[in-house]
Design a protein around this nucleic acid. Structure first.
Lengths: 153, 153
DNA sequence: CGTGAAATATCATAGCA
DNA sequence: TGCTATGATATTTCACG
């Protein structure tokens, strides 16, 4: 990470953006193939990737697992509002729920918004019970996903 | 995708899980290195990956971009409830908002829950205005993320 | 499902523009 | 920042258990 620049100063040119798009489509694309796609040599593309990694723009490369293929056929979005004095306990507890894959703490009436993957609707109640002494909850079930997580570049 | 199995029938053994963990940490890890980590040969690891890809468990490999490094310093979660007869128009409109990187349609009072990345809070109002004829909205700003998107395996 | 071995392709580095 | 050249690694295929 370069500390001599504010993060927001980082500028991507067209080639950087194209490389990122290609790597968003398939992060295991060989550098040599990326190089062909942008009409550059492999070493130069390699250097660009290193710079993007060191500047923090590229935070990593991750395998994308399909929860449905593993039998997680339900997504629940749970909004939580911690009970008085229970904030730390709640944050500790939600970290112990493996089905809970993401949680944001937000402004407004709902204090936390979490995303859970479930194999069966019957798994929901025991999970909510495990935090019922720590927070009031409001659960929605995802019916469809009109916009799937997409690239911001 | 194998169509002779229900998706939920797919079973991962310990080696599959370890490979997925390694690829979640770094999806560009060479097969040969994965092979060393699980004490197998490269061709067998290659075959396992092919099977995981063909069965749909591995949906892909994606570069992970840090929005903050690009100057997107704010995350907003917008809950929307479409106005009567405006559902299709709303879904079309949200697809046109580049800052909106994800949207789920859910059961309950809120019909849609979307995630937006913003460089500046002043960008929020024009975006909300662009859908104000289509939906009532309720916006929360993310203060922190107690659970960052994590692997479900 | 797994392996070893060999052909092919890719990566990483150094030196130069 | 980028290129070429090169030695070290990695990938992929195949015959086989």
């Amino acid at each position: 990470m370069r500390n001599d620049l504010r993060k927001s100063d980082i500028h991507l040119d067209g080639i950087d953006k194209r490389l990122i798009e290609l790597l968003y489509d398939n992060a295991r694309t060989p550098v040599s193939e990326l190089a062909r796609s942008v009409s550059m040599t492999a070493p130069s593309v390699n250097e660009r990737l290193k710079r993007l990694e060191e500047s923090g723009v590229i935070a990593g490369y991750r395998v994308d697992i399909d929860p449905l293929a593993l039998g997680y056929s339900l997504i629940a979005i749970v909004r939580m509002r911690q009970l008085p004095g229970k904030m730390h306990e709640l944050e500790a507890q939600i970290n112990l729920i493996p089905e809970l894959v993401e949680c944001d703490k937000v402004t407004g009436d709902d204090c936390y918004i979490a995303r859970l993957y479930l194999k069966n609707i019957s798994e929901l109640d025991p999970i909510l019970d495990s935090i019922s002494d720590l927070a009031d909850t409001n659960t929605s079930i995802v019916k469809s996903t009109p916009v799937k997580r997409r690239l911001l570049v």
